[in-house]
Amino acid sequence: MSSRRWLQADGVFLTAVGVVQVFQEFLAHFAGKGMLAVAFEQSPYTIGFVEAHALAATIGFLLIRFSDAPDVRFWHLYAVLVHAILGGANLLFWDSFQVFGFTAMGIVATALHGLFIVGNAVRYGKVKGGGHAA
């Protein structure tokens, strides 16, 4: 997969999951409905999840927008760092997934963050200077 397509796929992942999660978190917090209602109905902990997922969606949009930028190498490194933060937080606070009953979602999300770390790191290494990989 080309460097451009990889960044687009990464951006679609972050944006789609971020938007869906924020919607589910709002629905759960304010209406007590949806798959997250048990964990987030009127919970003060919802704020951290909303912030993380809204930022992920915003960052995903940036990856899509700048996937064909002349300095694409920067965006691969940026994506590595973003996924290292998100995946690392998942691992560091793994017990949160268990407490809230989200273990399966945590496994999938953390594995995908790992995949995008590796994929972006490989493409970062292949890109010469600031341009696109051949």
Rank of each mutant, 00 (worst) to 15 (best):
M1D: 07
S3P: 00
R4F: 11
R5V: 15
L7K: 03
Q8T: 14
A9G: 09
A9P: 00
D10L: 14
D10K: 01
F13A: 11
F13H: 06
T15G: 11
V19Y: 04
V20F: 10
Q21I: 10
V22W: 09
V22F: 09
V22Y: 09
Q24H: 10
E25V: 15
F26V: 13
F26I: 10
L27V: 05
L27A: 09
H29D: 06
A31T: 08
G32C: 03
K33I: 06
L36W: 07
A37H: 02
A37T: 11
A39R: 10
A39L: 01
S43D: 10
P44M: 08
G48S: 12
F49N: 13
F49M: 12
V50I: 15
V50W: 07
E51K: 13
A54T: 08
A54P: 02
A54Q: 05
L55Y: 12
I59T: 08
G60W: 02
F61N: 01
L62E: 02
L63Q: 09
I64S: 03
R65D: 09
F66Y: 15
A69F: 04
D71K: 10
V72R: 12
R73S: 06
R73C: 05
W75Y: 15
W75E: 02
Y78V: 13
Y78I: 08
A79N: 08
L81M: 13
A84N: 00
A84G: 06
I85S: 05
G87W: 04
G88W: 05
G88F: 05
F93I: 05
F93G: 05
W94M: 03
W94K: 01
F97H: 14
Q98G: 06
Q98V: 15
V99C: 00
V99W: 05
V99F: 09
F102P: 05
A104C: 02
A104E: 14
M105E: 13
M105Q: 14
I107W: 10
T110G: 03
L112A: 09
G114W: 04
F116R: 03
V118S: 03
V118G: 05
G119W: 01
G119T: 01
N120K: 09
N120H: 13
A121M: 11
A121V: 02
R123W: 07
R123C: 01
Y124G: 03
Y124K: 10
G125L: 13
G125W: 11
G130T: 13
G131L: 12
G131Y: 08
H132G: 05
A133W: 14
A133P: 01
A134M: 07
